[in-house]
Amino acid sequence: MRALVSALSGALFGLGLLVSGMTDTARVQGWLDVAGHWDPTLAFVLGGAVLPMVLVWRIAARRRLALLGAPIPPMPEQVIDARLIGGSALFGAGWALAGFCPGPALATLGWSGLGGTVFVLAMIGGMLLHQALLRRRAVLAA
């Protein structure tokens, strides 16, 4: 049941990305191109997603458990450190160069061609690199 809900959510997310136009890297890069031909579409996508979610979080806050029994995820510890800021800066740089963030890169994997496939494989590589760096730090700290 949980897997079925996850699959439905993933499918709806993918369809939303497709409908919103965020699967077009040129449109995403247009949003970042504040000094050129700026395209504000992404603000409508983000607004359309964030505003209803404010209400959803209010509903979630009134219940301790989700419908299938898992706890509602607690607010993460509010650590604002170099990892958060540095990581977000690296992510923003990659996002700008390709016009892809993780969701749209995955959603278009079926037809984005060699460039899209290379991006996703390299993204997985970057995630493995992160894991290797964490391990190395743990070894050095021990």
């Binding site: 040129a26 992510f91 923003g92 890169a105 061609g113 460039g115 290379v118 991006f119 390299a122 970057g126």
Partner: peptide, 25 residues
């Protein structure tokens, strides 16, 4: 999708996105 055909660029961008998003959670 207008994904770039510059594979070196896409590999660099993908690597940055993978590493950065995991660092920033």
């Amino acid at each position: 999708v207008h994904a770039s055909h510059d594979l070196v660029l896409m590999a660099l961008a993908g690597g940055l996105v993978g590493l950065g998003t995991r660092m920033a959670n």
